[in-house]
Design a protein around this nucleic acid. Structure first.
Lengths: 214, 214, 214, 214
DNA sequence: AATGAATGAGGTTTCATTCAT
DNA sequence: CATGAATGAAACCTCATTCAT
């Protein structure tokens, strides 16, 4: 990112605070203070608060671009293996980039988004959808996935489950008596559990068994 | 609620705007304007903006209290039937009370919540967890549910999927070319789809087949 | 006072709060709440907050009217005796009507006062000045008081000392380790001390000795 | 103060308005308007209205710190001379810093004060009390002051008289037909009169004559 | 005669941004 | 290029008062 240390610092702090308090709930003063830069720096570097979050989206979605693309192209893996790898990738990405994905969640809840963000989010989702579509069709063609699969609902479950897990992680810790774990340890634990859970969930859903149509 | 039309009107508008724009992103002016009341009415009736959202939580969680309790107690239904009914109930509740549950999602993302809200949300979740625990144990005792079920992950998937579906409903409409549907029609469609999807998902998960432990 | 219990109650509470927090620092809501009446009662009974304090002055200055007049007319007492009695009277009045005189102090500090209050205060002071003037002239005529007495400065000292004592009574209690005393006990103590102090102060000042003119 | 002209300007105007109208009776708008600065400057420089008056106390009490300390240490003056010099100093200070001492009076009348102010006022009074105590003990040791002197009552009279004179100066002018005098002239006159009056008052009180104990 | 609901003006403070340096 | 001072708009809230009952 621009190899300007102050700019990166601002982006990093903004990401954290936007995640914790939301966009409107975070003031540029808060960001400036926590990033240990002058308030005017934000307007100076990014133009405005609005453009700061745009830049954040620009920066963060660019990072993870095409992370999954190679997976689909891989010809050595079985369809179900690919699904599982993809689950791992999504869990990994969402949990590791917790802050950014909290912002994504907030943004998706919001009716009016900025041009930049809408476009980024939409592009991001369409691309993922396309990739998975290929993956699923491949499995269906191979006869291992059932035909009536609603891809978007599956993705809804995938993303929804991980997002919900991230949003309610404090509750999860309390319920499971994991308050002693440090952040890293817990994150690893959560990723493992989510991964396993989602793989089990999907295995039976994508295959031909146990299905009832309405 | 209090059989005071202005108060209810404020609460309703607040619910909608908080859902759409978030708490900090909604000004009391916005609420007052849209509810067609004087700005000072909000302080007059609720004390402050903070207490308004507290009152909103108070009012909305009270409404749905014990909605699910009778289900668990019912002795004529089979465990899996109960699960399915519960899925329907959750889908119904979250989709119909879309605004309120969007606020819930936002609140859960936020690090600092008000005393009242924290308590309500926590109580709400613990109660639901307890109810589902009973339901699951009943199924396990009857031998139809597998033993290693992680209840909290199942709820995470249930709520997460519905929440995600609500948050990304516009995307869903676009993907499935459902933009022609009016709001009511679409809601019915979404509920049906979610219900079916989740039932299928859970059916194979709660029963004894297809499972791999990590 | 009008034999209306609510009106009196309001006046009493207003007196206390105006004394403690000042006029602008006291809201009609505070008064209404503490007096346990509806807010609108104050406007209803008195017309406005401004007129409430006017009514307070009306009511309280009327009470103490002509309290001192008989003293001056008394022909059986020696001039110095009269001075001493007057000192006692002032101390008694100011200490016992602490709240009202705190308001008086505040009002005197304020540049813009209401018509009613200005008139009341001015009349009050002029009347007292006149009475004391007679008293002093009598003493001078009898040859026991010195001629150059500055009456207004003497009154300034008399009222100033008592007012200052009232205003700084907490400090006085701390300094003299009298924090154990209850309010009534302390008030009696303070009156006795002030009376003695002022009598001693005045005795030598009004008589012919020890004086230096500038 | 801080060599910032706008900040000083705000402090000066605030001092005047708080003196005239009280703290609650003065709005930050009033101050900003009269000081010819933007309203938000007050929060910007001082944080809040409350902190503005705190800063005022900080600034003004710092100014007059240890003004009297050297007097007590002086070994060439007789005790009574010292008393007289101290009287002059108090009269000078209170009359010249009229506005600030009006605020002090108001603050002392008020039950709830800010931490900063309480501390400043208390420290200020304790320090003065200590200094005068030394002065009096010295006089008692030298045999020229009587033993039963109540120091706090003497200070009450000293400060009370000057304060009362300041508070009622308009009345004084009317009584003495001094309305023609300009402000400076009158101030000089008042200081002279007060000084003379208080010296005479104290001379006979601190020495051994004319005293009656209760 | 008495009240509680309602109001608009104005209070203090925070906000994102700009400007002069 | 970078900054800290400064700003006006708008935020939330409290105020004294009024009005319909």
């Amino acid at each position: 990112m621009d190899n300007n240390p102050k700019k990166s610092q601002i982006l990093e702090v903004a990401e954290k605070l936007f995640a914790e308090r939301g966009f409107a709930g975070t003031s540029v003063r808060d960001i400036a203070h926590e990033a240990d830069v002058n308030v005017s720096m934000i307007s100076y570097y990014f133009g405005s608060k609005e453009k700061l979050i745009d830049a954040l989206f620009e920066s963060r979605t660019d990072e993870s671009r095409s992370q999954l693309e190679s997976l689909v192209m891989n010809e050595e893996l079985a369809p179900l293996q690919k699904i599982n790898i993809m689950i791992d990738a999504v869990v990994e990405r969402l949990v590791e980039k917790e802050c950014f994905h909290k912002i994504m969640m907030r943004v998706q809840l919001t009716s009016e988004r900025s041009e930049v963000i809408s476009e980024k989010v939409m592009g991001f989702k369409l691309r993922n959808m396309e990739l998975m579509k290929k993956l699923v069709e491949e499995g269906q063609h191979a006869g291992v996935f059932r035909s009536g699969l609603d891809l978007s609902l599956m993705m809804t479950t995938l993303y929804g489950t991980v997002n919900q897990a991230i949003a309610t992680q404090d509750f999860y810790r309390i319920i499971h008596n994991l308050e002693h774990m440090d952040h890293l340890e817990f994150r690893a634990h959560l990723k493992r559990k989510l991964s396993q859970h989602l793989k089990n969930l999907f295995k039976s859903t994508v295959t031909n068994e146990h299905h009832v149509e309405n």
